[in-house]
Amino acid sequence: MKKVLVANRGEIAVRIIRACRQLGIETVAVYSDVDRDSLHVQLADEAFCIGSKDLKDSYLNMNNILVAVGLSQADAVHPGFGFLSENPEFARLCEQVGVKFIGPSASVIEKMGDKSVARETMIAAGVPVVPGSDGLIESATDGKEVAKKLGYPVLVKAAAGGGGRGMRVIQAEEEFELHFQAAKQEADLAFGDGRMYFSGGRQGSFCCEL
């Protein structure tokens, strides 16, 4: 690996560029036109403006990022977190154009990144999972039915989600429609995927990330 393209912005892009440089790997930054003065652009060996400030035109645009990969002849892509980091299609496209995606394979991202499939996988492996719906919430009406069975408050989350985006705690049935749609829209905007599922939020619990 001689050259890594960092498909992200902000603090994590800087963190990755630093790590690459310390290992003697060259770095390529990509940025939207409003990010010209960003630190990641300043610190990378090369930088390519890939689109406008709109996420779908720049940091979420797989096509434009892969063009920058081609122009810079980078041999690997680090997706950071957020944006395309958990997008199996992007990982697959990277594999197809012969550039290393720094992360798990597209099929594993698909399996674990889809939160409802991940739950099923963990149940099969005997890992205890939070009580919740065993699949996707197809509509707000279906969701309300399941929420009634689970008991409020319920936690709805984006199947493609992460980092708190597309996630809402719903306290009562009257609020369900409003919060569900808001979370769904947020997920759609942030990940281009508005599929939702339930994740049980228990009163008085700790969150533990390993």
Binding site: G80, G103, R119, G162, S199, C207, C208, E209
Partner: peptide, 18 residues
């Protein structure tokens, strides 16, 4: 990610593949 309930039992929430 796991949650730990107040009786110290724990449950899988999700995996972030990144």
């Amino acid at each position: 990610e796991f949650v730990v309930s107040n009786d110290f039992s724990f449950y899988f929430i999700e995996m972030n593949t990144r």
